[in-house]
Design a protein around this nucleic acid. Sequence first.
DNA 1: AAAATTCTGTCAGCTTTATTGACTTAATTC
DNA 2: GAATTAAGTCAATAAAGCTGACAGAATTTT
Lengths: 158, 158
Amino acid sequence: MAGQSRDNSQYVTEGKDEDPIDFEIIELLFFAYRDFTSDPDAILEKSGFGRAHHRVVHFVNREPGMTVADLLDTLKITKQSLARVLKQLIDSGYVRQVTGPEDRRQRMLYTTKEGQALARALAEPQSRRIADALAKTGPGARNVVKRFLTNMRNSATG
Amino acid sequence: MAGQSRDNSQYVTEGKDEDPIDFEIIELLFFAYRDFTSDPDAILEKSGFGRAHHRVVHFVNREPGMTVADLLDTLKITKQSLARVLKQLIDSGYVRQVTGPEDRRQRMLYTTKEGQALARALAEPQSRRIADALAKTGPGARNVVKRFLTNMRNSATG
DNA sequence: AAAATTCTGTCAGCTTTATTGACTTAATTC
DNA sequence: GAATTAAGTCAATAAAGCTGACAGAATTTT
């Protein structure tokens, strides 16, 4: 299978009788998301936390009082995976638990003030990146992007 | 939620009149990307591969003849991380290496026919998801989304 | 020609984030 | 009272990344 001046025509199956694949947007999504998630990493490193902590702080902050089961369902990870991360956040004072007022088996989750500040600090560069990108894209971009992203979800219906 | 009022003043550098944070699009991006990447996972599981393999096959397929260094630069991972994944793909017959015709230290990477088929199979559900989402979003969506995603990248200039 | 650098590959060990399975405690429901 | 549920924990494992160190082959510089 040698060397130079190979016959590469075998690889050019692109666009024969097959459906075209939207490689362009697939790649744009990959790069956009990679850079988007790189924003908070510097902050997380200082706290000794990782992306898993980021997600937990974010969602608890967004939906105060959510239970552990709620969080598991949102993140779609296992209880044991969450346990480590959640414990660290609680021990560090970013998240606290309150026994459910109706069902006392439940633990309702809340961010502390520090947790809120952390969530905000992490979201801030991401929010700025989004705002800049939308501004560059033009008026009306926000609405289109919002609808597109919503439609990309599994549960999207319209 | 009766809080013990601990001294939480450490992180409270930003007060009440803060910039609004675009939590909405941050979350939409998270969910959209999570579901988007979940598409190929079923296929990968059958092959015994993971997302790392996916990325390698994808980019080698998109840019045939790219060198190992090119790939490292694209993926932004280390040589040692790539090594494991790349070796498995070569051993399984999805990717092959050709000694660089000019610089013989280089290894130019190509997908085999099987590699092309795999790349296509992985991209297909993602492409369909994108097409459906764009169609639901409306005419002109593709262009707006493309510009937005481009602008989300670190290197974006306009 | 010799030395330095570059491209690739590999060994060894570590970290983060996830997994499954099994079990416990406490609280609620049947 | 028994069964179920919410949460927590212990143990073992896996995927995918990391750093550091080193080696072979090829190229470039001196």
